[in-house]
């Protein structure tokens, strides 16, 4: 067996693992989208399966749905939150960390209020959970949706808290949006992953609204 003769390439270990961590954030956020797709996919499958079966004519015999007004409010809040997050990202790329923080604190409250309204909605449904097919599927969907919104807002909250706590680190380099420090690059990769995921949730919320409140 021959021997390695060329000189050993220099591997910057810190840079290697920094790039690996950034790649992991990219993949982690995409996997969270895949998990969201399959988790909600099971519930949406139940929706279409029971709707198409219409067992004993009891999918939704009286055309009852959960409050459309409340559904529209929840959807609006989620979309507003996603838009504010995107707006904040644009401001961050232009160097305004404060604008990003303000926009994303507002986005955080938007998402939390959406989750709160979803939970409130579950307490005032105008049907019993087992009354008919739609009622059961909505009862399954509501808590999962609220939980996912809360977990999403946990993710955003950690980013906001981190931007406040680490702000001084990046001041000299023009803020976390411009800094070349590894922590700043890691932050931006994490934020990019969240924003991508949050746009997915916004689109998914439109689909849920159409299914549960319009059709």
């Amino acid at each position: 067996m021959s021997e390695i003769t060329e000189s050993r390439p220099v591997v910057d270990e810190e840079q290697h693992y920094h790039e690996a961590a950034i790649g992991s954030l990219w993949w982690g956020s995409r996997i969270s989208i895949a998990l969201g797709l399959t988790a909600f996919g099971g519930i949406i499958f139940a929706y279409f399966y029971l709707r198409s079966l219409n067992s004993h004519g009891l999918w939704d015999p009286h055309g009852q749905t959960a409050s459309t007004l409340m559904g529209a409010l929840i959807l609006s809040l989620v979309l507003l939150s996603a838009i504010l997050n995107q707006f904040g990202n644009i401001r961050l790329r232009k160097g305004s960390t404060l604008d990003w923080q303000v926009a994303n604190v507002a986005a955080l409250f938007g998402g939390l209020f959406a989750a709160g309204f979803q939970i409130w909605e579950m307490t005032r449904l105008n049907f019993q959970p087992g009354a008919f097919g739609y009622a059961g599927v909505y009862t399954a969907f509501g808590p999962v949706y609220a939980l996912v919104l809360i977990l999403s807002m946990y993710w955003l909250e950690t980013l906001i808290a981190r931007s406040f706590r680490s702000a001084k680190l990046f001041v000299e380099e023009g803020g976390v949006g411009f800094s070349n420090l590894p922590q700043a690059e890691n932050f931006r990769a994490n934020l990019e992953g969240f924003s991508y995921y949050w746009v997915f949730m916004g689109i998914a919320s439109v689909v849920f609204f159409v299914l549960f409140y319009v059709l």
């Binding site: 399966y49 067992s55 004993h56 959970p129 097919g133 009622a135 059961g136 009862t139 399954a140």
Partner: peptide, 21 residues
């Protein structure tokens, strides 16, 4: 779990569900 605790009928045909789900 919902059918057993919250009394939904997702898996119960006579109330609009289906065990095939």
């Amino acid at each position: 779990a919902l059918d057993r605790t919250a009394q939904t009928s997702l898996l119960y045909g006579p109330h609009g569900g289906s065990s095939f789900l």
